[in-house]
Amino acid sequence: MARMHTRRRGSSGSDRPAAETPPEWSDVDANAVEERVVELAEQGHAPSEIGVILRDEGVQGVPVPDVSLVCEKSVTDILADNDAAPEVPEDLYNLMAKAVRLNDHLRENGTDHQNKRARQNVESKIRRLVNYYRGDELDAEFTYTVDKAREIVE
């Protein structure tokens, strides 16, 4: 599939091996994994960071290769069930943080045309994601502005 704002194709990456059950060496209790996921979310970690932490550190000394194989739910589903889900989806939050950084940079460097274009592209992606999430994970009246993004990020 092609990239959104360039004429190039994306580079393909490796895929995880398809598995329907967790490996034998990972005999972790699903309840312990869910408790650890909620605990890490309360510490302020994003869902993708939680997956990396569980893969590297594990639960009770045993690494968790894939949370969805062990618990039969994704990290975001576990967080939603325990009322610990972030107020804005992670991909949208990261784009908003990038737009805020670009805005701050352009306030000091007004003639940086390359970053003006980058900000336009990022804000275009944000508007598309807001339309995608509107009603389900965002309010029906949510609209993107830089000031609103700054409030969410800070």
Rank of each mutant, 00 (worst) to 15 (best):
R128F: 11
G13I: 14
S68T: 09
W25M: 09
A46P: 00
A19C: 08
P23R: 03
L95R: 07
W25I: 09
D147G: 12
R128A: 14
F142W: 08
A46D: 02
H105V: 05
H105C: 07
V33S: 02
S26W: 02
D15F: 11
T145H: 05
D104W: 01
R9H: 09
A46N: 05
T111A: 08
A85K: 13
E123R: 14
Q43H: 06
V122E: 02
L79D: 00
V62T: 12
G61Y: 02
N131F: 02
G51R: 09
Y133D: 07
S14G: 10
G51Q: 04
A18P: 00
L106S: 07
E35Y: 03
E72H: 12
R101D: 07
T145P: 06
V28M: 09
S14P: 00
H105T: 05
G58I: 06
A99V: 04
R16A: 15
A2V: 14
H45M: 13
V67S: 05
V67G: 02
M96L: 08
V38I: 11
I78E: 00
M1N: 12
S14A: 13
W25V: 08
T143P: 00
D15T: 15
T143W: 04
A46R: 13
D139F: 01
N103E: 15
V100P: 00
E108L: 15
V146T: 10
A140V: 13
N82W: 04
L40N: 02
L129E: 08
R55K: 11
D83M: 07
A84I: 02
P47T: 03
N31A: 15
M1T: 11
K73S: 08
A18G: 05
R119P: 00
R16Y: 04
Y132Q: 14
T143R: 12
A2T: 11
E123Q: 15
G10A: 12
S12P: 01
E24K: 15
R127D: 13
L54E: 02
N109T: 06
V67E: 06
E39R: 14
G61L: 05
R119S: 09
S68D: 13
E42T: 07
W25G: 10
G58H: 04
A149H: 01
D83V: 03
P89W: 03
E42V: 08
D15S: 15
Q114V: 12
H45Q: 09
P65E: 08
V153E: 06
R107Q: 10
T143K: 10
A85E: 13
L54T: 04
A80S: 09
E34L: 01
T145M: 06
C71D: 00
E137H: 11
L92A: 06
A80M: 05
M96S: 05
G61V: 03
V33G: 02
R127I: 10
E35R: 12
N109C: 06
P23G: 06
M1I: 10
T145Y: 07
P47A: 09
